[in-house]
Design a protein around this nucleic acid. Structure first.
Lengths: 164, 164
DNA sequence: TGTGAAAATTGTAACAT
DNA sequence: ATGTTACAATTTTCACA
């Protein structure tokens, strides 16, 4: 009953310690040079470059992206907007979903089950901008039956999905 | 009434089009070479490198990190855990906060106002792992009065905080 | 597969505009 | 603050263990 996979190796895909070391380093600093990466993983540079390409192509490493400070870009106010729909037809849900992720200031959209249908994490310029975003771009959709907004005091990234 | 800032320039910090172009490029591909970055922003390479350093030092660019596929790392099940506290003393809140972000599988912790105190976005191996995480590492804290868990069907990154 | 040394590309610092 | 040049560091390629 212990786990999902045969207990010999860690995760499903054949990731070894070298792969995990490379990934961990890139989570800390995505611009770390291949040479530094290789040193940290304890392999030759060419090997490291090869592993990195393989990790990208296998889909384990989905991307490397800059993290920006929303406040520095004029969006100091964070909120969670819970969105509840009136109709749950596949078309309605997908259409709204596509629209929501495109809205400026939307950081993440969670499509959830339970009381709500979508949870939006947004960063906006201020209370008026938040109200405008909700009224003009969320509630305005006919499928949206109700929204509820929570102020976010702070957001912190967790340790993520890497073992250790 | 139009906006928060004098309408001549965009955001508060003195970010010009070059800065925004660099940031946008790095959000798409954080490992883009400085040369490619410069070409895209339409400036010389040395200028681009200088701008990039300045963006880091000013805190607008908070970091560049790898994005991993949780499912590929053995954590295909996503959930939102709403955490409600019994006591809201500063010490209790901060202590719990620090613990929550350190839990394996925790992607993001939102400290919110309203019905709940914390919202946790977690990625786990399966239903049992989710139950264990909640019972052993969340509910186990004496300050936690109640939790409520929502299944996450899908998570999508929004367009973020860059204008345009 | 993983490695090491070469060639090709890229980043960095000094200086001039 | 930007661009040009020259030099140092890095990535990539490929023959080989």
């Amino acid at each position: 009953m212990a786990g999902e996979w045969p207990k010999k190796t860690q995760p499903p895909s054949g990731l070894d310690g070298t792969d995990l070391a490379i990934l961990a380093a890139l989570v800390e600093d995505g611009r770390m040079t291949n040479a530094a990466l290789a040193a940290r993983a304890g392999v030759a540079e060419s090997t490291c470059a090869y592993r990195l390409r393989a990790l990208r192509e296998s889909g384990v490493l989905t991307g490397i992206a800059a993290h920006l400070d929303p406040a520095a870009l004029g969006r100091p106010l964070h909120a969670i907007i819970k969105v509840r729909l009136g109709s749950h037809s596949r078309e309605h849900v997908h259409h709204l979903y596509d629209r929501l992720v495109e809205l400026p200031g939307v950081m993440t959209v969670f499509h959830v089950g339970g009381d709500d249908d979508f949870l939006l994490h947004v960063a906006v310029a201020g209370p008026e901008a938040l109200r405008d975003l909700i009224l003009e771009h969320v509630t305005a959709h006919a499928v949206v039956r109700q929204t509820e907004t929570q102020l976010v005091f702070e957001v912190r990234d967790g340790r993520g999905v890497l073992p250790g």
